[in-house]
């Protein structure tokens, strides 16, 4: 019932979203890389290697939620979409030999095609991918009950985050690994396999 009402509200506000676009946005989430090997340069010397493996599960929401950010020119807007898909058991972030369960994909996408952009370097889509560990309900990133129910604004304590500027190759960039609330910059290691 709640999701039904939500769909109605979305329909009123984002009237121009087609079923095909919703499908495309969901496809972005489904296309997130399912294995990653990351390096974290350490001031202690050497590089810490982190591995991620994702096994896709059921969507947490029926379709991506879509909302438009209006620009000064009322005919133009930046479209945003949010999607959540659960990950199945066996998904993990491997740190120091420990397999920490990754539990869902949270994708916040920005669709620039309606913004009137004329810079060829500006991407059509920017996808901000966050893959949290340990949150089986996939609620975050912000604790909606904060500050009344918790002193912590951020719900997730361990996660993998990155940005994708081109969905055709889904290359992760600006990668960070959050481990028990500490955040580390990481890079993609191409091991050639």
């Amino acid at each position: 019932m709640r999701m039904y009402l939500l769909s109605i509200v979305i329909g009123i506000v984002a009237t121009n979203v087609s079923a095909q676009e919703l499908k495309d946005y969901r496809e972005f989430t489904l296309a997130v890389r399912d294995t990653l090997t990351l390096g974290i340069p350490s001031t202690m010397g050497g590089t810490v290697t982190v591995e991620a493996k994702l096994i896709l599960g059921e969507p947490a929401i029926p379709t991506p939620a879509v909302f438009d950010f209006p620009l000064a020119d009322e005919s133009k807007f930046i479209r945003n979409f949010v999607d959540r898909i659960y990950l199945n058991d066996g998904s993990y972030l491997k740190i120091q030999g420990e397999e920490i369960p990754l539990t869902c994909i949270f994708l916040h996408g920005q669709d620039n095609r309606y913004s009137g952009k004329d810079d060829p370097l500006a991407p059509d889509f920017v996808l901000r991918v966050t893959i949290p560990a340990n949150d089986y309900s996939c609620v975050g990133p912000i604790n909606p009950g904060w500050p009344r129910t918790s002193e912590r604004r951020e719900l997730w304590d361990t996660s993998l985050s990155y940005v994708v500027r081109d969905p055709t190759i889904m290359l992760p960039a600006d990668i960070t690994v959050q481990y028990r609330r500490n955040i580390f910059a990481a890079y993609l290691m191409d091991l050639g396999n």
Partner: peptide, 16 residues
């Protein structure tokens, strides 16, 4: 809408 959609399956009970 973004917030509502984000808590539709929440294990954080919101609103209380």
């Amino acid at each position: 809408i973004m917030i509502v959609s984000s808590i539709a399956k929440a294990s954080v009970w919101y609103p209380l």
